[in-house]
Design a binder for these strands. Structure first.
Length: 469
RNA sequence: GUCCCCAUCGUCUAGUGGCCCAGGACGCUGGCCUCUCACGCCGGUAACGGGGGUUCAAAUCCCCCUGGGGACGCCA
């Protein structure tokens, strides 16, 4: 028997989304933290789909969540498990709780319970079930639910891994439902059973779950098991400081993919929302695994900032492999702009890397390289401003000169233009913008020589000529 | 309403009693570079919510207030 088996259980974390919607920003960050913690500790990361709400859970959402995790590179060692397939297990635990007197049948109707809650509210107390059936010895029936027999007084406390000690008066808690009238288990019960069964050692989740934690601890106790360690990470807020929700626009992770963000930028951004390591901002995946720790998790909520995400994205775009970017860029291009030769995109990309904040932006900037010459759109104001009669004269003269040069690479072009401005005794500035407008249709573009090289002699000449009608 | 959590620049954060009249990053902004736009480089702007303690010393510890967030389901 080795030492590890003797005194160290392997760290086991899980991400437990409910497939009632897409994987959103907050969920993704929770998944990321759990994944990092497991990887850091050479532990196990489990994906568990909490689909006990049969009404709202769908297959499509499950797939969408898996796809999003895949995109972010969050691989799991076990699962996906589906709670909908584990009902018997939950029921056996509930049965155990009934047997041990920790749970009881209750025949109060939802309306009655609501009345109890309302009564409590009236008295300025926390709304809760009043325990009416607790000692009535009710038996199972078509309309009965099963409730936990929770302690009436005392406290339930735990040491949160990110927030420190947290405690609740048991009087704040009530005999919550474990099994619904239709015989299905509820969230709190299923979670606890699964975390016990799967050997989960650390639960990292949003701090909107803090209130569930004492309930779950009560269940662990009733089940005679020791609870795992809990760590509640703060919420991610929208710019208005409200819990991030659909009102704040795009919040599904895959929506960010569609907007042209790179997964490594997303991961880097998300991890820094609530976690820090000294003054560092940029982290590779390996660095993250190395440096991640619960101690460096912050305890206050943070606001999602697209600006910073975009900054990170532009950083990773600069660093990314060109062949990979080419593939991604293609996804953002209109069909008619996708070149037959993918190698052509790879020539364009280096010019755009320092300029694009997102791949979507890069696609926009790449358009003039890809569109047919005759269909190039010219910015009217730019044409009016820069294509003066004088400039047009230069352009046609330049066109006929370029016609005669053999190599159309940056160096030769630079040389050719050097001679031209020397002869004409003008500054390059004089012809630069007219040239740019003629070739690209706009006033902003990558450097002229590199742009011309990529475009090639024929297309440059064609464009120079077409502006002069 | 009740309970729980939180509180440093606009935003993300460093800071774990002296090294802090508070550091980094994004943003914004001045400049340099320059064929435009970017990149890059150099500089600037801007914060410890308030009040009481504790201490020789507090952004850091304690209390109160205020402010914000979350939870109060037979949803998860």
């Amino acid at each position: 028997m080795n030492i590890k088996a003797l005194n160290m259980t392997t760290v086991t974390t899980r991400f437990a989304p409910s497939p009632t919607g897409y994987l959103h920003i907050g969920g993704a960050r929770t998944a990321l933290f759990n994944w990092l913690f497991a990887r850091k500790n050479s532990g196990t990361f489990i994906l568990r789909v909490e689909d006990t709400d049969e009404e709202r859970s769908t297959q499509e959402m499950t797939q969408a969540i898996i796809d999003a995790m895949d995109w972010l590179g969050l691989d799991y060692d076990q699962g996906p498990f589906f709670q909908s397939q584990r009902k018997d297990l939950y029921l056996s635990y509930i049965d155990k709780l009934i047997q041990t007197g920790n749970a009881y049948y209750c025949s109060c109707t939802p309306d009655e319970v609501e009345a109890m809650r309302e009564a409590a509210r009236q008295k300025g107390l926390k709304p809760k079930y009043d325990g009416k059936c607790r000692e009535l010895g009710k038996v199972p029936g078509p309309d009965t639910v099963i409730r936990l027999k929770a302690p009436l007084n005392g406290q339930t406390a735990f040491h949160d891994q990110v927030k420190g000690p947290i405690s609740f008066d048991n009087q704040e808690l009530d005999d919550f439902v474990l099994q619904r009238k239709d015989g299905t288990p509820t969230y709190n019960l299923a979670v606890v059973v699964d975390d016990i069964e799967m050997g989960v050692t650390h639960i990292l989740r949003g701090d909107d779950h803090i209130n569930n934690t004492p309930k779950q601890i009560l269940l662990y106790r009733a089940l005679k098991t020791v609870p795992p360690l809990f760590g509640h990470v703060p919420m991610i807020l929208g710019p208005d400081k409200k819990k991030l929700s659909k009102r704040h626009g795009a919040l599904s992770v895959m929506a960010y993919k569609k907007m042209g963000f790179l997964p490594e930028a997303m991961v880097n951004y998300l991890v820094r929302l609530g976690w820090s390591f000294k003054d560092e901002e940029i982290f590779s995946r390996d660095e993250l695994i190395n440096k991640f720790s619960l101690e460096n998790l912050g305890s206050s909520a943070s606001v999602f900032d697209t600006n910073k995400l975009t900054w990170l994205n532009s950083h990773y775009i600069k660093e990314a492999d060109i062949a990979r970017l080419s593939g991604i860029l293609t996804e953002h291009l209109e069909d008619e702009l996708i070149p037959d030769d993918p190698g052509y995109l790879e020539k364009i990309i280096p010019l755009l890397q320092p300029r694009a904040g997102t791949m979507h932006e890069m696609a926009e900037m790449a358009a003039f390289f890809l569109i047919e010459d005759e269909r190039l759109v010219y910015d009217e104001k730019a044409v009016d401003k820069f294509l003066s009669p004088e400039a047009r004269t230069h352009l046609s003269e330049i066109a006929s000169r370029l016609e005669h040069i053999d190599s159309f690479d940056q160096k030769s072009l630079e040389q050719e233009f050097g001679e031209y401005i020397r002869e004409k005794e003008i500054k390059f500035k004089v012809i630069a913008q007219p040239l740019r407008v003629a070739i690209t249709g706009r006033t902003a573009s990558p450097g002229l020589f590199e742009t011309m090289e990529v475009l090639g002699k024929n297309r440059v000449l064609c464009r120079l000529k077409q502006v002069n009608g």
